[in-house]
Measured scan of single mutants.
Amino acid sequence: SQVHIGNTTFTFDNPEKAQKYAEKYAKKKGLTVQKNGDVWTVE
């Protein structure tokens, strides 16, 4: 599972961890999370 934030990609061994990280980061920065398969993009 991966989380894309700008030009940075974070890889997680667990989809739940990836989703939590993406949502927490997005909330903190006032951004949105797009999910595509097991990839979350914060923008």
Results as ranks from 00 to 15, higher is better:
Ile5Ala: 03
Lys28Ile: 10
Ala26Ser: 03
Asn14Gln: 07
Lys29Ser: 06
Tyr25Ile: 13
Pro15His: 05
Lys27Gln: 10
Gln19Ile: 06
His4Gly: 02
Asp13Tyr: 08
Val42Thr: 04
Ile5Lys: 03
Asn36Ile: 15
Lys17Cys: 13
Leu31Met: 10
Trp40Phe: 10
Lys17His: 13
Ile5Cys: 04
Gly37His: 03
Gln2Met: 14
Ala18Val: 00
Lys35Trp: 08
His4Trp: 07
Glu43Pro: 06
Phe10Asp: 00
Ile5Leu: 05
Lys20Gln: 13
Gln19Arg: 13
Glu43Ala: 13
Glu23Ala: 07
Ala22Trp: 05
Lys27Leu: 07
Gly6Met: 08
Leu31Ala: 05
Ser1Leu: 10
His4Asp: 05
Pro15Leu: 07
Pro15Gln: 08
Asn7Met: 10
Asn7Arg: 10
Pro15Lys: 04
Leu31Asp: 01
Glu43Ile: 15
Lys35Val: 07
Ala18Lys: 00
Thr32Leu: 07
Lys20Val: 11
Ala18Pro: 04
Trp40Met: 01
Gln19His: 09
Thr32Gln: 08
Ala18Tyr: 01
Lys27Asn: 10
Trp40His: 03
Lys27Thr: 06
Val42Met: 05
Asp13Glu: 11
Ala22Arg: 01
Thr32Phe: 05
Thr9Ser: 08
Ser1Gln: 07
Val42Arg: 00
Ile5Ser: 03
Asn7Gln: 08
Tyr21Ser: 00
Ala18Ile: 00
Ala26Gly: 04
Val42Asp: 02
Ser1Tyr: 15
Val3Thr: 01
Thr11Gly: 05
Lys17Phe: 09
Asn14Phe: 03
Thr41Tyr: 14
Lys17Trp: 08
His4Phe: 09
Thr8His: 15
Thr9Arg: 09
Val3His: 01
Glu16Met: 11
Thr11Met: 14
Thr32Pro: 03
Val33Tyr: 06
Lys28Leu: 11
Ala26Glu: 01
Val33Gln: 01
Tyr21Lys: 00
Lys27Trp: 06
Lys17Ile: 11
Phe12Gln: 03
Trp40Val: 01
Gly6Ser: 07
Val39Ile: 13
Val42Lys: 00
Gly30Asp: 05
Lys27Gly: 07
His4Gln: 13
Asn14Tyr: 06
Gln19Phe: 07
Gln34Ile: 14
Val33Lys: 01
Pro15Thr: 05
Val39Asn: 11
Asn36Asp: 12
Ala26Asn: 03
Asp13Arg: 06
Lys20His: 12
Lys29Ala: 09
Glu43Leu: 14
Val3Asn: 02
Gln19Tyr: 11
Asn14Met: 08
Gln19Glu: 09
Lys24Tyr: 14
Lys27Arg: 08
Asn36Gln: 13
Ala18His: 00
Lys27Met: 07
Val39Trp: 07
Lys24His: 12
Thr8Pro: 02
Tyr25Gln: 06
Ile5Asn: 02
Ala26Arg: 00
Lys28Val: 08
Ala22Pro: 01
Ala22Leu: 07
Thr11Gln: 11
Lys28Glu: 14
Glu23Phe: 07
Lys24Asn: 14
Trp40Ile: 04
His4Cys: 14
Gln34Phe: 12
Gln34Val: 14
Phe10Val: 09
Gly6Trp: 09
Lys28Gln: 10
Glu43Gln: 12
Gln34Cys: 13
Thr9Pro: 02
Asp38Gly: 08
Lys24Leu: 12
Gln2Leu: 12
Gly6Val: 05
Trp40Ser: 02
Thr9Leu: 14
Thr41Met: 11
Leu31Lys: 02
Lys35Thr: 04
Thr9His: 12
Lys28Thr: 07
Tyr21Pro: 01
Ala18Leu: 03
Glu23Trp: 06
Ala22Tyr: 04
Lys24Ser: 14
Val33His: 01
Tyr21Glu: 03
Phe10Trp: 09
Ala18Asn: 05
Tyr25Lys: 05
Pro15Val: 06
Val33Asp: 01
Val42Glu: 01
Gly6Leu: 08
Val39Met: 12
Phe12Met: 03
Asn36Tyr: 10
Tyr25Met: 11
Ala26Cys: 03
Lys24Arg: 13
Gly6Tyr: 11
Gln19Cys: 13
Leu31Trp: 12
Thr41Lys: 06
Thr11Ala: 09
Phe12Ala: 02
Ala26Leu: 04
Trp40Ala: 01
Lys27Pro: 01
Asn14Pro: 00
Lys35Phe: 12
Thr41Ile: 14
Ala18Ser: 00
Lys27Ala: 11
Gly30Phe: 03
Asp38Arg: 05
Lys24Trp: 15
Tyr21Gly: 01
Leu31Thr: 04
Val3Leu: 05
Phe10Glu: 00
Pro15Trp: 09
Gln2Ser: 09
Ala18Phe: 00
Tyr21Arg: 05
Lys29Gln: 07
Gly30Ala: 03
Gln19Trp: 08
